[in-house]
Simulated scan of single mutants.
Amino acid sequence: MKINKLSIIIPAYNEAKTIFMILNKIKAVELLDNIKKEIIIVDDCSTDDTQLTIAAYHSEHADLDIRYFKHEVNKGKGAALHTGIQQATGEYLIIQDADLEYDPAEYNDMLKPVCNGFADVVYGSRFMGSNPHRILFFWHTIGNRWLTFACNMVSNLNLTDMETCYKLFDTKVIQAVSLQEQRFGFEPEVTIKISRIPKIRIYEVGISYYGRTYDEGKKIGWRDGVRALYCILKYGIFSK
């Protein structure tokens, strides 16, 4: 399949320390088949210098197609993704966190199943493949695996990492999905709703993971895990 442009959706909240580094990594990536990059940054009402950092970066790199949107009220990662998804103009889009946990150099690994005509949706799994993975939190890993297992039960998928940030979608397909979750409940909601689209082709590829600690800015916590389980029940069982 021929893709002319990939939209890269970046939700950002107080990421002034790392946003320019992730933009440098995105800039350095040469996509398959000369695919163009559209970078959509959604600032979820940051209270640090995120906006100024992005503006300064864009002024120095005018060749990059960067579109910036800001929420006037902090709504959550899911809400930022809703905004970015609806603004995307590429044939496909990928979700990229503003921190440095995921490596844009692996975009092409995600794109291959699409460009080769096999996939409509591609998830990047932190739990498969031989790429580097930082060793961090035992209970986070267990929680991720159990949430993925529960999500697979209601969606009839066999994913290894439902909670991954790296998700690549056919833009028209994901824009037609009605999404409600404002925070990290986005992950199970979108997975379950995508799985119910007739003839949708979902693939998974192994990716690396350079996780960060809470001192380094990690934001997800146990309450988000509880919400994710609630969303699996809500959208997987009670919304059939």
Rank of each mutant, 00 (worst) to 15 (best):
D97W: 03
S59Y: 08
G217S: 11
M153R: 15
R183P: 05
G117K: 05
L229Y: 11
D120N: 12
G143W: 01
G129F: 02
I207Y: 02
L168E: 02
I19K: 01
A16I: 07
I26P: 07
I232V: 13
A28K: 15
A150F: 14
K234R: 14
N24Y: 06
E106R: 08
E60V: 06
T164H: 03
L31I: 05
K2L: 07
K37E: 02
D109T: 15
H133N: 10
V73C: 12
I232F: 01
P198E: 08
N116M: 07
F20Y: 14
N14W: 06
K36F: 06
F127H: 03
M153F: 12
I207S: 03
N4D: 15
G236C: 08
I207C: 08
K17D: 08
F20D: 13
I197G: 02
D103K: 03
A98V: 10
I174G: 01
V73W: 13
T18W: 03
C151M: 06
T148L: 06
K77R: 13
H82G: 05
Y123S: 01
R201L: 06
A105T: 11
V226N: 10
N144Q: 10
Q175H: 06
G143S: 12
A228D: 00
L52W: 04
T47D: 10
E15Y: 05
N156H: 15
H71S: 12
A88H: 00
N108A: 10
C151W: 00
D65F: 09
C45W: 06
A150H: 02
R126H: 14
N116Q: 13
I174A: 04
E204V: 05
G217Q: 11
A150P: 00
R67M: 04
V42Q: 00
N158I: 08
E216C: 04
N158V: 12
D224E: 08
A88P: 00
A62N: 13
D215K: 15
T18G: 04
Y107W: 12
L157E: 14
Y214H: 14
Y13F: 13
D170T: 08
I207R: 04
Y68K: 03
T160W: 08
D65G: 07
G124A: 04
L233R: 15
N144T: 11
E91P: 00
K36G: 01
E60Y: 13
F149G: 05
A105D: 11
Y68L: 13
G185S: 04
D48F: 12
D97P: 09
H133Y: 12
W222P: 13
G217H: 09
I85V: 05
I10S: 03
I237A: 12
I94C: 07
T213S: 15
T50V: 11
F238S: 07
Y13Q: 00
F127A: 04
T191R: 01
G225Q: 14
A80I: 04
L32S: 12
D103W: 04
K219G: 09
S46M: 02
Y123W: 10
I194N: 00
Y166W: 08
E163I: 11
I202E: 08
R145D: 09
I194E: 00
D97A: 05
K218F: 13
P132W: 09
F137R: 12
D99S: 01
L159G: 06
Y166F: 12
Y203A: 08
I94Q: 05
K27F: 03
S59C: 09
C165R: 03
P188W: 01
S130Q: 13
P132D: 12
R67F: 09
